[in-house]
């Protein structure tokens, strides 16, 4: 076959257009843009947030669809084609330097996001996400509106829950430190409240707890556990001051189970996230011991009621004394 100019030009174009028809023409003709069960229209604020999302290249670090093999945020909902109707553009993304955001709405309350956008390391100490402080408060508000809408109606129902508990948490916080803790603990199921930490607070375990505290908690609860981390600037209620817990041990002896439950489950409505996706049981119990020993000077590790010690445990005796309370002798 001899390549003539006519063959080159006409041939190359014909093959190209025929191929292109299959790959973009047919989908254009056949793909239906029907809203899925969770779809809803974006409000003007959310729409403005979408523009900011596109302009600032959030999509180079965040994807917008959940696959069948995903576990991280959003894994409750595998993406469907109808989730994106009308969004222009709905950039799906190719990198997960940060987590998928397709179901981000309602994962956190607004104050968490505002703090996070101002400096992601405030809420997430080892984050690689850039700070967006330079965008200014108004644009950060719009971005927040948009991420809170990601997930459509599923996000809305999560937001409803956030807002409901946000009101309760604020009321409790404004009732003073003791009232606040009483409210916080009343949210923890009874069985967890009277549960001591079953695992010994050995030196190794405390070191592990410290490492996790530094990677996950330090910029909220602060290096000395007083709740004065950088995130306290924008979150309300601010992160808890652990030292006040000293006078709120359940029956003046239990705190391990409360720590475990609160860390696992988070305190919806406040900036306190749930950590059950990030941290497995070993790490949460270690944290629980670390918080107690470091900030309360007390842990209930290995106290009664207790079961059979786990095989790996060394001989370890709990020498921590429960605090002396006014009018009530310590144990």
């Amino acid at each position: 076959m001899k390549m003539t100019p006519a063959l080159l030009i006409v041939g190359a174009l014909m093959v190209f257009w025929a191929s292109s028809f299959i790959i973009v023409g047919l989908p254009s003709l056949t793909m239906k843009d029907e809203p899925s069960d969770i779809w809803r229209q974006l409000t003007p604020d959310e729409q403005a947030g979408l523009r900011l999302y596109v302009q600032n290249g959030c999509s180079y670090c965040h994807s917008r669809y959940i696959r069948i093999n995903d576990w991280d945020i959003g894994a409750e909902r595998i993406a469907q084609s109808g989730d994106y109707v009308g969004q222009e553009p709905a950039i799906l993304g190719t990198e997960r330097t940060g987590p998928d955001l397709s179901q981000e709405g309602g994962e956190h309350p607004d104050d968490w996001h505002i703090s996070h956008f101002n400096n992601p390391r405030f809420t997430s100490p080892i984050s690689l996400m850039p700070s967006w402080k330079f965008l200014g408060a108004e644009k950060i508000r719009q971005l927040t509106a948009f991420v809170q809408a990601m997930g459509g109606k599923m996000a809305d129902s999560r937001m409803k829950r956030q807002n409901h508990y946000k009101r309760a948490a604020i009321a409790a916080f404004e009732a003073g430190p003791d009232g606040n803790i009483t409210w916080l603990h009343s949210q923890v199921p009874e069985v967890w409240r009277k549960m001591p930490n079953p695992y010994p607070a050995t030196e190794a375990s405390l070191l592990r707890g410290k490492r996790i505290y530094q990677d996950f908690c330090i910029n909220c609860h602060g290096p000395i556990g007083d709740g004065q981390g950088m995130a306290a600037l924008q979150t309300y209620p601010p992160p808890l001051n652990f030292t006040t817990l000293r006078r709120h041990l359940v029956e003046n002896k239990y705190i391990g189970g409360i720590f475990y439950y609160q860390i696992m489950n988070g305190v919806t409505g406040t900036a306190m996230p749930y950590f059950k996706k990030h941290l497995e049981s070993e790490k949460i119990w270690d944290l629980s011991n670390y918080l107690g020993v470091t900030f309360l000077g007390f842990t209930d590790a290995n106290t009664d009621p207790r079961g059979i010690d786990a095989a790996y445990e060394e001989e370890w005796k709990n020498n921590y004394q429960a605090p002396e309370l006014p009018g009530q002798p310590g144990k």
């Binding site: 790959i23 973009v24 793909m31 843009d33 994106y84 009308g86 969004q87 222009e88 553009p89």
Partner: peptide, 16 residues
């Protein structure tokens, strides 16, 4: 204005 199609089909144009 956007250089994009609305909805999921955009990803097909984009990756074309």
């Amino acid at each position: 204005a956007t250089g994009a199609m609305p909805g999921l089909i955009d990803s097909i144009f984009l990756w074309f």
